[in-house]
Design a protein around this nucleic acid. Structure first.
Lengths: 222, 222
DNA sequence: GTTTTAAGTAAACATTTGTTCACTCAAAGC
DNA sequence: GCTTTGAGTGAACAAATGTTTACTTAAAAC
């Protein structure tokens, strides 16, 4: 008749700390379910609370409904994305083959944050209209930052910002598409992973090849 | 006390015709729900049968479960996609600005088959693993056909097929992404639609600019 | 030390879900 | 014409869903 295993030394936590902790558990639970093949509109509130080890009604102490939880997850995914950019910025430009090494780094980063990338990649087009819109807005934000970075790097300094953003938007679309496929690889498929990476490298190369020859659109003049 | 409105002159149909007809109603119902904001994993069997005007149990006379229905929808979407290619082939090359006019045609085609394109665009990354895989396979098929078409048109005749497919895969990714956004436009937003189209045209231009300069990968030699 | 507050619990609810079973009844097969 | 077949019905089920309502109980406020 073991009643209840005390999950953690709980007494040391303040009330608000405890609250934030279960809130986190709920978010984690949803993320786990999502990366276990579920998709967001297929989630149920009770499922999430069950996974979090919490009674269903406790959910309402933290979120109005599942959509609100989802939005907070999207926000976090946006942070993860932008952190990627920041790290890439600090790493500076590698010497040799910049695209290939970027893809390697990106690939590792995706695998290090599978749940956020799966969320971003798979609910970007599917899912509830609310989440979709939120993700689009995060992606747009990311694209703007990336374009700004290209500008700081002096890449195609002659182009107007809108053109740089057009290029970056293409890159990001390709990146997120690749993320979805990377995460679908049945782990340990080294060969398939390498082919995928090869294609990804090729596509980015193609894009930048186009970007180098790109001539400014007429949008900059009256 | 109106019992039941006789929906159609039913007596003239043979048994198998009637069966195929309700099967079609079920598929139509699912497509309608999907393009009304629902996503596939959020669909319920009863919901579909309700929309189709049929009792829930009738569903099992046509499909084992929702996944089977979904697969048949994906198959149809694949047909629609490939029909697009065939029509483009017959239309031949327009004289002036080939990319812009292609985008116009594509855009109209997407709006003419919104449900199939929404399915393809939104369940390609999200949704159930089964549907996702099926859609990926349809898309791959489409990419191969498109590459073959480029070959027949004499575009970059020097490149190996794998490279043409790499290019086409990039194009198709961009196309499907654009389809998702086109369908999300709150109808009547002419300005937004034009901006979207402009970006779409730009990205394709960029891709083909890169494709023209592309140099064959080393994969062709031993 | 007493009172207040609020995170989490427990029970109960009205719906909705997927699936079963036995049934009708009209077309198809003979 | 009689029999067989099978698409669609209707009732019933166990299970799961979202949400409300009243409750415990320990930290926070005084």
């Amino acid at each position: 008749m073991a009643k209840h295993v005390e999950p953690l030394p709980v007494a040391v936590l303040s009330r608000s700390e405890r609250k934030q902790h279960t809130r986190e558990r709920l978010r984690e639970a949803a993320l786990d379910l999502l990366s276990r093949g579920q998709s967001f509109p297929g989630l149920s509130l009770r499922e999430v609370t069950r996974e979090a080890g919490v009674v269903p009604t406790a959910f309402y102490r933290h979120f109005r409904d599942l959509d609100e939880l989802g939005l907070s997850l999207v926000e976090e995914a946006g942070l993860v994305l932008r952190r990627l950019l920041r790290e890439a910025r600090q790493a500076g430009l590698p010497t040799e083959d910049i695209i290939r090494s970027s893809v390697r780094i990106y690939s590792a980063y995706v695998r290090a944050h599978p749940r956020q990338f799966r969320l971003a990649a798979s609910e970007r087009a599917g899912g509830s209209p609310l989440l979709r819109q939120a993700i689009r807005s995060e992606v747009a934000h990311f694209v703007r930052e990336m374009a700004q970075d290209l500008r700081l790097l002096g890449f195609r300094a002659d182009l107007p910002t809108a053109d740089l953003e057009l290029i970056c938007s293409l890159v990001v679309n390709t990146m997120l598409g690749a993320a979805g496929e990377i995460l679908d690889l049945p782990e340990g498929q080294g060969q398939a992973a390498r082919e995928l990476e090869e294609r990804f490298v090729g596509q980015l190369r193609l894009i930048f090849l186009g970007a180098e020859r790109w001539r400014a659109t007429s949008a900059s003049g009256p």
